[in-house]
Amino acid sequence: MISAHLVKRLQGTQGIFHLDVALEIPEGKLVTLYGPSGAGKTSILRMLSGLMPPDDGSIEVNGMSWFKGNDKLYVPSRKRNVAFVFQDFALFPHMTVLENLCFAMSQRDEKQAQELLDFVDLKGLQAVKPHSLSGGQQQRVALARALAQQPKILLLDEPLSALDFDLRKRMQHLLRKVHDRFGYTTLLVSHDPTEIMILSDFVYHIENGKIIAEGKAETLFENQNTILTTGTVLEITPNENGFAVHLKIQDSTLVIELSDEKGKALQIGDTIELGPRK
């Protein structure tokens, strides 16, 4: 169980704002931080991992105190055993894939590293250096390396944002598989409602440094009447559930899954309205 109250003055694109959030993350659950860029989501991960000191508040993990603003208590990142999958993956360029995993372990265990690589579908790539891998492969190495650390908390900072649609889908399933098998307490940062629906047990919606809504993904995205907008259909691809429809909404794109019936009625270039489920 992680309970954290984090207070921090942050510099955003729109100027200075105050982050003030209280999070409860039950042991073994996957919780998502959702919200626009610059809301403070990555900063929350950095504060939990010890890479950024909060100005005030407290962090408690399984009854152990990692940070207490009043008492000047601060456990350094080195001693927290938190695994962080960075947006740029942060793979060590001079080490092979296997070395990257072994380096993350407290006790070197090549056999286990190999098993993890098999688990994330990277069999046969153990001797390769990261720069010769594709983006999706690097992503999986980063994930396997985080697992090799056997962390108390797993932090995933928009791990899928750089991947194309098909890879994203595969990675979402892999992340679900990882969570079901290893059961690490996981905090995920994501922009993608579909992804959040598939993966999360609980969601915090964060804007401007504050939690504006929280709950289970299904209820949260149903009840929010703030996401009432229109989108232009860019692409329609059939998949096992019906259709995956890529939409352009203002400056970003969104992928939604639609049933056969609804998907067939759409054409590229159509404008559709998105709103709360009635």
Binding site: S49, G50, L51, S77, R78, K79, R80, N81, V82, A83, F84, F86, D88, A90, F92, F103, A104, S106, Q149
Partner: peptide, 14 residues
Amino acid sequence: PKSLKEAAQLMGKS
């Protein structure tokens, strides 16, 4: 990249 050092730090390295 700063993340290289940070990743190693989180792995508990001195």
